[in-house]
Design a protein around this nucleic acid. Structure first.
Lengths: 144, 144
DNA sequence: GAAGATTGAAGTTTCAATCTTT
DNA sequence: AAAGATTGAAACTTCAATCTTC
């Protein structure tokens, strides 16, 4: 493995080690839920969730968490009233996770905090966002 | 926040969500310790560790983990015989973490496995490693 | 029997409190 | 009183087993 590639990998690890932590701090300071809740609420918001709902499996694909972990995370978010479970009519094994009005509201509050950290810690130092995006996107794809 | 910057951020999150998990799988399949152990052993290996030892504080700066978390991680690695704690002569509050011969040996076995995953999942898809490194390195630096 | 999801038990990480030394 | 590190309790995540439905 050449030095440049390894250096790029280490740099990526460093960025990831630093920025999400700053986001967590900013969210906590604003009295808002942790980043993981954002990761769950966001896919439930428009585009991906036709009727503001997704099944656990679909949600698990969006979140960096085991199936079990997602079950428990959703437990907590549901307890806070930001999502609600509904049974699936066509397949009674499944659960829908449905975003609530309170969930949408909380998501709206979280984004500006998240965004501000990204602006300061990420965007401000970034020369060419488009090039970075194009370089990284192929790497994140499902195993080809 | 513009779409390209946000896209770059999401892509980075996706890469990080995918690759370390593959490394963990490969290590486990080879009967080797988890990636976190690598992260502890590596700084103890040459360059950064003059006498093959570092203090907890210095090690914590290298690892993505709280002080407490590092204490417990080192407990496990020490139990496996891959590092050893020594007291600091000049400052008896502190601990040195010292790499053992077995630790060096294990590190040597882990790297090829780690490297192979990086080759396949990262390097192979990467057009311009140098550009990526230069784009990401400024972002990972300590708060300026 | 396999798929979707949850539960119990175990492993890991964190916060707050503690202990020791400076 | 502050710094370095550890400990107890709580929070979070995972694995294996389970339950229900297909």
């Amino acid at each position: 493995m050449d030095e440049e590639t390894l250096g790029a990998w280490r740099a990526l690890l460093n960025v990831h080690a630093r920025i999400p932590g700053q986001v967590e701090e900013a969210l906590a300071a604003a009295g808002l839920p942790p980043l993981a809740w954002y990761d769950v609420l966001w896919p439930l918001y428009r585009a991906r969730a036709p009727a503001r709902r997704l099944r656990m499996g679909a949600l698990a694909a969006e979140v960096t968490l085991s199936r079990t972990g997602l079950t428990r995370l959703v437990d907590r978010i549901e307890e806070a009233g930001l999502v609600r479970r509904e049974s699936v009519a066509e397949d009674r094994r499944g659960s829908y996770i449905v975003r609530t009005r309170a969930g949408a509201e909380r998501l709206r509050r979280m984004w500006p905090v998240y965004e501000r950290v990204l602006e300061e810690a990420f965007a401000a130092q970034l020369r060419n966002p488009r090039a970075l995006r194009r370089a990284l996107e192929p790497l994140g794809r499902r195993p080809s």
